[in-house]
Design a binder for these strands. Structure first.
Lengths: 193, 193, 193, 193
DNA sequence: ACATACGGGACCTCCCGTTGCT
DNA sequence: AGCAACGGGAGGTCCCGTATGT
């Protein structure tokens, strides 16, 4: 009756799905990584691996969203916040020795066609990030349509840069992408002088 | 003794790896999809599944590079070429009912940590696209350093937009990302008047 | 605290063991079929699945014995009673859409070697039917030895016919077997004129 | 490349299904009992356990039919042949220490409802025995209708008696059933004096 | 009386790679 | 080139029994 067995399984799964993918990660890997009992797996996740995957996506998506919130709260302006958001992703990439990039992307690509439930959960995760950023952009005085486009561009740039950065084992792509997105945002902002 | 058995296997594998991922695709799926004989699988690919994956990545990477070449050859300027490159990716996404996004990304994320050989092949693929684009940018008068950064930004934007577009089942993210990249390129070009 | 929870579990188990067998029926099936609470399963049956099986056999065996009693009580002579006993088995087979044949036979065959306790309970069930019938035959004037043989023959015929009838999804084998047994009994009866 | 791996698996499976039932017997038991390799199981039986069960039923059914053929060929008359058929079943029961009764009955009862394919194969097995016996009875001068009924009665008696004999660990039920069936057959034969 | 959780293990399926025979 | 069989192992699912709190 260890406290948080279920949560430990989700956390372990999230990390493994992020690193190795959904298909390549087995229950055995999850319980070994989390130090959780085998027998309780099906008890906590009667929906099977798919349910585990879903909860892992929700967890990972929430962490990314929290990071964005923090950056928005602590930065002087939106463009800077986005730069810090990208930088934070780069730090976590380095901290994990380039094992943990985006907690959603791998599963998203694997399951987009094969497992509708998971694919939709991943799409919802990306959408949530975009909407949070779009809200901030609108508050900074950018028109709704342009704010939506910039948010989409930012999330796409983050995802693509994380992919390249992880493959290449260096965070440069994240820095470049951050510059590009920040420039675009600053160009869209009304003059503040 | 069918002509091109080996090539048919690679093509089938490339498509399946792209759609379902490396781990989720088995030999059985490959031979069934390609209509190729079972018995000669390991004859043609003594390196096993890893070799098959490698050749599939090489094939897919080459196709993307060819598309870029064509766009560069047919467009009036580099920025327009990039826009057409992104648009072509969107067309292929639609044509495949959003099953086939990037032929490299899924495998890249799955194997970045777990299968070094494949991970490196994927990194090389991305790098090749970047270098081709960088060459074109330099020829258009952009300084080498800026050209490299813009190329990296472009590939990242393409990858991220393809990911979002596939999850969302609509090509809008590709259009937005194309605009962003084209703007950045045009701003970097020397005046052409 | 539902009234008769225990009995409902036994009844559900009896039906499932009869239909699908002992090994193929799990606790989950039993609680679902009976609508009984999960948590008290092992409270009511500390002996585990084996105890549940035992009680199910006792229940089923008792029902068959009751049916025999009724036929003996209501029929003009023993041979007729046996015919009605077989006919009643056929009716229950039809009523259950050929799902419920003998409540003992399947478990008996499955556990004869593997689970001595259950095997013996099944043997006892068959023996009880035989003895009840033998008593009736002796009361009809048949010598003890002949009565025992005829009883054994009758129970064997009933079991074999139920097996064939269930497989074939028609009650004809029961009718044929009933005729055969009734003839044998009538031939053994002392003249009644 | 041991000769007859596939056949050895079927033989082992037939024996285990007969003794413990279809549901209680796992692949592991089969390969251990037969000394056959694990990895070839799915190769030889792509239809899975159901296919294995089917082939085991066909094998067992054929053995019983062969025994009947032999008895018919070697006995002076049909009634005697049936008596010897029942006696042979009893001998095999004793030889196996009451582990092996009918090779079809257990699976028949377990799968009659749950696995249509197997249930039908079992029904076909019983039917084949009946038809072989009916042919012999007709050749002995018994009318077709009566011959069919007597065959059904005989198979039912054999099955029921085997069930009782196995539970009780004594062959007496088989002897009694054999007498009953032989009497019925002799009564149906035309006078031979 | 009932529920939640723990535990280990077995279920069937199927994979990937190898080995000799066409 | 192609095939059929081998061979071990891991895939996810689910079971049965126990322990711990209501």
């Amino acid at each position: 009756m260890a406290p948080g067995t279920r949560d430990r399984m989700i956390a372990a799964a999230a990390r493994l799905f992020q690193r190795d993918g959904y298909a390549a990660t087995g229950w055995r890997d999850v319980v070994e990584a989390g130090g959780t009992p085998w027998g309780s797996a099906h008890h906590h996740f009667p929906g099977g691996k798919e349910q585990l995957g879903l909860e892992a996506i929700v967890l990972g998506s929430g962490q990314v969203l929290s990071a964005l919130e923090e950056c928005l709260a602590g930065a002087p302006d939106v463009a800077t916040a986005v730069e810090r958001w990208f930088a934070a992703a780069g730090q976590s990439l380095i901290a994990s020795q380039f094992e943990c990039g985006c907690p959603v992307a791998t599963v998203a690509l694997e399951t987009a066609t094969a497992v509708p439930t998971l694919g939709e959960a991943c799409a919802a995760a990306f959408r949530a990030w975009e909407e949070r950023l779009a809200t901030a952009l609108r508050r900074a005085g950018i028109a709704a349509g342009r704010a939506a486009d910039l948010s989409c561009q930012a999330v796409a740039a983050l995802e693509g840069a994380l992919l390249l950065a992880r493959c290449r084992r260096e965070v440069r792509p994240l820095e470049i992408a951050a510059d590009g997105v920040a420039d675009a945002i600053r160009a869209a902002l009304p003059w503040a002088d």
